[in-house]
Simulated assay, not measured.
Amino acid sequence: MRTYLGLDTSAYTTSVALVDEELNILSDERVLLKVDNNERGLRQSEALFYHIKNLPFLFEKIEPILSGHQVQALGASAAPRNVAGSYMPVFLAGLSSARSISTFSQLPLYEISHQEGHIMAGLIGNYSLLDKPGFLAVHFSGGTSELLVVKKAGGQNLLNIEAVAAGFDLHAGQLVDRVGVAMGLPFPAGAALEEMARRYKGEHPLNLPSYVLEEGFSFSGVETRCQQLLKEGVPREALAFAVLRVIANTLEKIIVIHANKTGIKDVLLVGGVMANGIIRERLVKRLEHPAVGINTHFADSHLSSDNAVGAAALAAYLHQQK
């Protein structure tokens, strides 16, 4: 069977994946980088060191699957986004490994952006979006908060991606993690914050105002207000629910603004923040209301967070188009 290998070494996850010619996932292996309690992240040098340690372990895990399969090409994340000047040292771990494998085995290597990998992973199961003239895409994570217009491209690129709105300051994932850590939750705090928010049973949720303009949005004021409310003794469950609700409200507003501006009525939502069930539920309810009429498409929950499946799938697609 012909297979395609993907590598992604992001800020907090080491990932290796294999897909077949039809983009079926054969292996999806990841290691979440360890962050000490009460810390809000890792330095790039620390993360790079962990990736170098983790990659041989992940290759050992996929080795049994490689037996009897013929790898045709590799895909590796080389930068956060496919724009000039986009760079993070952590991606060198996966990219260097992929380049070494490519040189030694004489296999083609497709260097992609982390963002393209997220979108490609989200397109698995949502392939109908590629038949449309274009679609909106949300990429919300700890390092990116952007609304994009995505169109199918030709040549060496599958996707033409244009950012039309972005966070002015704090990213959505940073808001979740900073408030979560302040509550004593582990980093990254997304899953634990959602679990806490699910326990909120109040009838009148806290209202954290969202700040949204056509060109972007802000979460720094929300974080400041959350820290104040924690000091005032607001129940943690209520605050957790309010944080997720304000992220959903912010997304709803910016999506509607650009859906009306562009006439595009389909939106794909990817990135670690979009794995959150409370945010998903509110967006589906609000955006798919007949009065709004926007079609929401989500990556599978396990493909919302950082992974190498998108890199492998994009390599498979591009290689088969040659």
Rank of each mutant, 00 (worst) to 15 (best):
T296P: 10
S304C: 13
K61C: 04
P186L: 02
R30I: 03
A73S: 13
S10G: 15
L230D: 08
F217E: 11
G271Q: 04
G216V: 15
L318I: 01
K265G: 05
E46N: 07
E22C: 10
D266E: 03
Y12N: 14
G310A: 12
S305P: 10
A153Q: 13
E22F: 05
Q70L: 11
K322V: 13
V150L: 04
G143Y: 13
V243T: 04
A240I: 09
D306V: 11
L130G: 12
L58D: 06
I52R: 11
V309I: 09
R43S: 14
Y12I: 07
L159K: 08
K53N: 14
L283T: 09
Q70H: 11
C226L: 03
L314W: 04
G75H: 00
P290H: 10
V270R: 05
A93K: 02
R198A: 13
D177N: 05
N82T: 07
V273C: 01
I294T: 13
K201P: 04
Q321S: 10
G143N: 12
G85W: 09
K53E: 12
E223D: 12
P108T: 02
S100F: 06
I294Q: 13
T224K: 14
E281H: 03
N37T: 02
E281I: 03
A76T: 09
G221R: 02
V150P: 08
